[in-house]
Design a protein around this nucleic acid. Structure first.
Lengths: 230, 230
DNA sequence: GAATACGTTTAGGCGAACCTAAATAACTAC
DNA sequence: GTAGTTATTTAGGTTCGCCTAAACGTATTC
């Protein structure tokens, strides 16, 4: 029972991606959240939500939010796969700077054919994570989305490895790169100031390492996992 | 005096490309020809023509056809550059089969940024012709569009080099490849049957060569230039 | 439980890009 | 030069994806 792959419009793909991402937190995606994420008015979202529900891509309980159907989820994952493989390809093959791949991939993901994506993936040796650490769905629509803690959640003292950073803001990415905070980097929290204050951490680096301080908002965009002390 | 590069929609870019191509023959592009080429109704073309004229991309004399303005032409050439560099990249780097690059490039050309195109071009050593022999416009919007004769125009006996083939029909491309007719190939016309009859020719090939026969319609899609006898 | 605040939906509109059907202009043939 | 064909335009309509303003539900607070 293969779902027929009818081509979806660019906007529809964007909605599904946004809903997928919002839903990942647990709660059904609210109209308002979708609107904020896509930078369009809530009223417009209401309209599109009706159409997506009609097409069977989401279920909608009025006033209570939206959930992807199985069909909607695989469509979202198809787009996500395109996006992330494009990001890999742009960085690794075409030497795109870290902070600019997202926007370019955002455009191309709606135009690239499945064949192109597969050829790019093959040329890269079928990567499993994109340059920002996000896992790449397989062709048949599965991902292991690890539930990672963020830098804002972990306790002082823990040794951590950065697994993933949010990629939707170029400026933020540039700043994180400056700090040496990128997937794979090893960090340790030295201090967390009270009242949502700055988090001071040690960032291992090629030439030794450095002390850095970040605010909570930024720390929440950095996903980490514990690393065995040694 | 640099023309501001406001982003054009996909359909608009397609219209400009089509008009550019039709105009190259000499005559201003007619509503009907544009409609045929884009596979849309003449009435729709009338509507779009008004909008393009309003934007200053074309001039329109009612009932007499349409011409690109300088601004329209550079916009067309920008799109054409994207298209052709994409074709090069897909063939040379990603090993796309000859007959499938056109359609893929047709989609991507509307989404790819100037930066991506430049990076691809650089990776290829700034090619000057695409895989079908079409010249690639430069970044500043110039091309030397050689006025070539087609296989249907030349006399019996001449030694010829294939310079370019029309790329807009995948099946035709597959067939031409089968016959060994691709840019760079050397051919000689052995016979032209009267009354628009088949054209018999000798096609040089790696392993010696072969005799082939093609109809006039096909011959008109193959552009050639004379080669000094030796 | 009434008042308020906030989130959501409905109503009504708009531009882009297509369509069909009907009207009109231009060319062609007799 | 009139008739007929063909090309072009106009008129009116559709869908998609957005908008603002107004109405409506839900949750919260006193």
């Amino acid at each position: 029972m293969t779902t027929p792959v009818l081509p979806l419009s660019g906007p529809v793909e964007d909605y599904l991606k946004a809903i997928y991402d919002l839903e990942r937190v647990g709660e059904p995606a609210s109209t308002n959240d979708i609107a904020l994420r896509l930078a369009i008015s809530p009223a417009s979202v209401s309209g599109m939500v009706r159409r997506l529900a009609d097409q069977g891509l989401i279920t909608h309980e009025p006033y209570r939010g939206v959930r992807l159907t199985r069909e909607g989820r695989t469509a979202a994952l198809r787009t996500l796969r395109r996006h992330r493989i494009l990001e890999c390809y742009l960085t690794e093959v075409l030497n795109y700077p870290w902070d600019r791949v997202h926007d370019e991939a955002e455009q191309l993901e709606h135009a690239a054919s499945e064949e192109l994506i597969d050829r790019m993936a093959a040329a890269l040796g079928n990567p499993v994570r994109d340059p920002h650490g996000a896992p790449i769905p397989t062709r048949d629509g599965t991902v292991e989305e690890a539930t990672l803690r963020t830098l804002a959640d972990v306790a002082q003292g823990e040794r951590l490895r950065v697994r993933r950073v949010e990629d939707d803001d170029a400026e933020r990415l540039r700043y994180l790169a400056e700090l040496g905070i990128r997937p794979g980097a090893l960090v340790r929290i030295l201090d967390k100031a009270p009242f949502e204050g700055p988090i001071t951490l040690w960032v291992d680096d090629a030439g030794g390492g450095a002390t850095r301080a970040v605010g909570v908002a930024l720390a929440q965009q950095v996903f980490v996992e514990a690393v065995a002390d040694q």
